[in-house]
Design a protein around this nucleic acid. Sequence first.
DNA 1: CGACTATTTGATAGGACTCAACCTCCGTGG
DNA 2: CCACGGAGGTTGAGTCCTATCAAATAGTCG
Lengths: 271, 271
Amino acid sequence: MPSTWAIRRAEPSNGLAHPLIRKLSNYTTLSDEERKAVFQAADKATDFKAGDDIVARGDLTGGVRLVLDGFACRYKILEDGRRQILGYLIPGDMCDLHVFLLKRMDHSIAAMTRTKVAIISQANILAFTDRYPNFTRALWWSTLLDEAVTREWVVNLGQRTAYERMAHLFCELYYRLAAIGEVRDGSYLLPLTQTTLGDTLGLSTVHVNRTLQDLRAHSLISFKGGIMTVHDLPALEIAGFFSADYLHLGDRLAPGTTGTHRPNSELQVKR
Amino acid sequence: MPSTWAIRRAEPSNGLAHPLIRKLSNYTTLSDEERKAVFQAADKATDFKAGDDIVARGDLTGGVRLVLDGFACRYKILEDGRRQILGYLIPGDMCDLHVFLLKRMDHSIAAMTRTKVAIISQANILAFTDRYPNFTRALWWSTLLDEAVTREWVVNLGQRTAYERMAHLFCELYYRLAAIGEVRDGSYLLPLTQTTLGDTLGLSTVHVNRTLQDLRAHSLISFKGGIMTVHDLPALEIAGFFSADYLHLGDRLAPGTTGTHRPNSELQVKR
DNA sequence: CGACTATTTGATAGGACTCAACCTCCGTGG
DNA sequence: CCACGGAGGTTGAGTCCTATCAAATAGTCG
């Protein structure tokens, strides 16, 4: 990874916030007691290096893994080797809140860069959900968010052309990363190869390459060395039929806000 | 709808069970108090006729809608009219457990046949989740199940050919309907037109038609007049790279069970 | 029996895939 | 300091899967 870039290391908007608390605060205000519980339960972190599986299919989930820093993906592999990526995880996202039901993981999660992960024990989660209804609902909310994103991926794969799909994906990542302060000047780190992009969008590597050239030719983006730069977000949104509402970024805003939510203006792309 | 068929009307395995309770019992045992609360909260039902929207995109969700009987689908429409179906709802499924977060629905739900829906008020849901942690986790579990299915749809659309996709979908519906006793002699009601199937699988109507013919030519299924008959489930599963594990039908079974779960043997296809 | 809607069929076009090279960038090691 | 090797990116050519267009054939319902 080029060390000249340090987007990811930039100071967070709130230096003290735990990624999970920051995320859940999009839904509700956690009590001091709840915050403290989170800090206590999710203090010890494990590092995974790029390529490692954080959770593997078939694992008996024994606790909740929480991404503190880095970039990971959910994926599934068919018997004949085809791979489909199911979603990307960024700081604040939980890997397997499936603890309760999914005794076994039905898919895997891999780190795409060095990724820091905290593990909250099953006992702690059960205790939380017994004790803090508000916190429980907040966790639940976060799984609903994941589902909303997954649903949009279904639309993406089912209805959109390669060009639209790719534009849509880049918009989604833009908004999600902007919401956690990881977009600077219209750029964000995207540690994916074209092959990985293909497994994400259901396209061959060759076609990913050509579609990417298309997007560049239209001056919408640049993508090189793991750095994604969006030159014209509005145009990219149009190209991808993107509407940020499914990300529910502003659900907690005061009523009266319009349906389309936008990240902080300072994170918006200029010119 | 042909009245000569009455699969759906056949007596349930437990005449007294509320569809929701039956479903949640796959995860946990609800206390008598919890059961009673469900019955009280979800007694009044509304009927929707085929084609009606049960919930529309943009709706402020005011309570949880629960399918008691019938067949419905989630869907999303792009600005240019393309439609993608995101999943099917059968008795016991909840439409919008998004109440908490998704102040607004980001997609719609339509009835595909006459569908009976119960509405649990938001107040009741909040009260439940405050009072019954076990019940709350069970509801949460059901949303995780939905998500697992949606993830598999991503794989389906991203990686599988038209033929495989269709085989996979028919397997999924077979298992899900078998689990609630709505498969008889390898047949189940599937009130979809070929156009709808196309919107589900990301295929044109014409290609759906031809793929269907393929499946028939291979003696895997028949599909006519809204009745789906699976002639050779194992072969259909192989054709669709289907593995039922993602449906988590047997997660509550005693340990030692193999990873692949099967519906009641009496519901299995013969010959 | 019309008026629809749904299913089929035929013919053609095009988006995306496959195969096969070739190029580029980097890290390693002699 | 340059050769080598490998991973990732780019190109070209040919093919196939699936879409589109168009029209004919069922099936349904008042």
